[in-house]
Design a protein around this nucleic acid. Sequence first.
DNA 1: TGCAAAGCGGACCCCTGGTCCGTATCGTCT
DNA 2: AGACGATACGGACCAGGGGTCCGCTTTGCA
Lengths: 197, 197
Amino acid sequence: MPERKPRKDAVRNRAAVLAAADDLFARCESPEAITMADVAAAAGVGKATLFRAFGDRTGLIRALYEARLEPLRNAIAAGEPPLGPAATPLERVPALLDAVLCFKFDNRHLALALEGTGSDSPYQATHYTRWHRTLRDLLEQIPGFADGAADSGFAAHALLAATRADLVEHLVRHEQAEREEARAQLAAFTARVLGVG
Amino acid sequence: MPERKPRKDAVRNRAAVLAAADDLFARCESPEAITMADVAAAAGVGKATLFRAFGDRTGLIRALYEARLEPLRNAIAAGEPPLGPAATPLERVPALLDAVLCFKFDNRHLALALEGTGSDSPYQATHYTRWHRTLRDLLEQIPGFADGAADSGFAAHALLAATRADLVEHLVRHEQAEREEARAQLAAFTARVLGVG
DNA sequence: TGCAAAGCGGACCCCTGGTCCGTATCGTCT
DNA sequence: AGACGATACGGACCAGGGGTCCGCTTTGCA
């Protein structure tokens, strides 16, 4: 089956592009300010190399995002409680939301860039659907959700919506919220939804 | 003080543009597909007229949106219960969220176009801040919010986030949700947040 | 060492938002 | 009514960003 290993200059260039893009997105403010030509120049590479490696602008951003996402994915799939699978739903739901919020907070530039592409809905991204499915399944295991009138699928969407990158960005920039503040607020809201406290 | 009345060909053209844009956005799918030149052509007007009347693309979309928004704004500011000011907070909160959801549902094309401009965060739009303030104030009047650990401001954001246009669009297109289904789900979620039922 | 094949780069295309300026229209003042 | 300044019109024009093409270079295998 295919999967021929790529030439090493290709992997070197790919890495250079990733690094350069990461750097540029990190320091620049609005993600739309940085262009593909910028990234190519910063990586010391031709534009075509960018597009050959990542398809299009969205592909590049997605690649960056996915790379950052990996530790979180692992922690959720096979980590320790309260994030990992061994935790009880009632403690895992807040932990998951908190972890997602932290991730969005720490990677706002990328998250913003990704949600802001406009070309594709954030709701079709594979990482979103994974979070959503996990969250919905957890909610269904909590007494009062499955049997209550509430739809777990919608509740999962609604809870995740509270971690939207542009909301986080707004809280930080225009309401001067600190990281811990945001976490506390989300935790309180989550607790309320879960009927805890 | 200024405010000279505009020439009547100007108002005629403005109306024509508004109508044409409304129509185009309504029938076309992804809002990014329709260009300023399209709108100008459909309205039988030069491109410059568009930009002179609305400033830029975002301005045009905002004008359309605001126009549609007016009935809702009135209903909230001076309508009858449960939406109007005479209602108790506990019935007005769900009513407000339901009304916003319905509005977003019925005007998804515009809402999507507006949130998707990318140039400006949805959280800075004046109508958003109005909804947010109203909602926050209502929540604060509900026992268990002001005195609870939850932050009403964040809770208002979170609740409104459940009505985001792209979420609504996702529910409709990829989860085949009907209007009434979506309303019921949001109502159930809201009730849970409010601690009702 | 030879030689496909894979990869490279930057000139190039295209499309879209936004502007300019000569011309037409409006409205007002006499 | 006629004339004249102000206002608006419109389509040619510009800028710049995403994405592609193709002649040249590098790689890796025999």
